[in-house]
């Protein structure tokens, strides 16, 4: 089973070719607001080093968010187009699971600007509750109230060093718990913020 993993929902660009539970090739880089220019080259690079042809691809696993409004659409556009022209299965997961990997009771927080985060609790690879938007204050309260939780993601918002996650473990965990999408046309990103919030 030749699988392509893509995450463009946040600051990083993560692309990997995965076969039978093994990461064959991977690109993982800082790509804030430049995922759109970098993603196809990254996919091409992964396929080349895996020695795969595009037509051999069988499934795409992407993060549906939560995340920045533009980034979150990048991986999804690619997946939707591929599924429209070829019999390629699409699965979705979240960036929170990618970052938490197999960690126990891990609250992942990603900068959502205006002193807010996209956050959610992940336990051994599975979301404990639906991701939501929280204020930094709320996260601080979670931290005080739950001493057994770990915190990961954009910890600089709490004036701590950002966590370094095991991205390979994260990818494999995401694939393990990914959700098969039956209707590719109906798939939409997990924005959490309403479109009208961006009124200019």
């Amino acid at each position: 089973m030749k699988q392509l993993f893509i995450d463009t929902a946040h600051r990083h660009l993560t692309v990997a070719c995965v076969e039978n539970g093994l990461i064959v090739s991977m690109v993982h880089q800082e790509a804030f607001k430049s995922q759109s220019e970098k993603v196809m080259d990254a996919i091409h690079q992964c396929f080349t080093s895996a020695d795969w042809q595009p037509r051999q691809l069988q499934s795409v696993i992407l993060t549906e968010g939560p995340g920045s409004y533009t980034g979150v659409r990048i991986a999804m556009t690619i997946a939707k187009v591929l599924a429209s022209v070829a019999s390629i299965q699409v699965f979705t997961t979240t960036t929170l699971q990618l970052i938490a990997a197999t960690g126990k009771n891990t609250f992942v927080m990603l900068d959502a600007r205006s002193s807010r985060v996209y956050g959610g609790l992940v336990d051994e690879g599975q979301l404990v509750q639906s991701p939501a938007i929280y204020t930094i204050e709320q996260v601080k309260q979670f931290k005080e109230a739950n001493s057994h939780w770990q915190f990961a993601g954009d910890l600089h918002l709490l004036n701590e060093a950002d966590s370094q996650s095991d991205i390979r473990e994260g990818i494999l965990t995401c694939i393990r718990y990914a959700r098969l999408i039956e209707d590719i046309d109906a798939l939409t990103p997990m924005y959490l913020k309403s479109g009208e919030e961006y009124k200019s």
Binding site: R73, M76, K80, V85, T188, G195, E196
Partner: peptide, 28 residues
Amino acid sequence: MPEVASRLHIEQISLVLKDSIEKAGVSM
């Protein structure tokens, strides 16, 4: 509204692509 427009594009892209290929009667 720009953000609303972007959101609608991603909801339409696969439908429009499939429809256009089918109507054209061509192979990619």
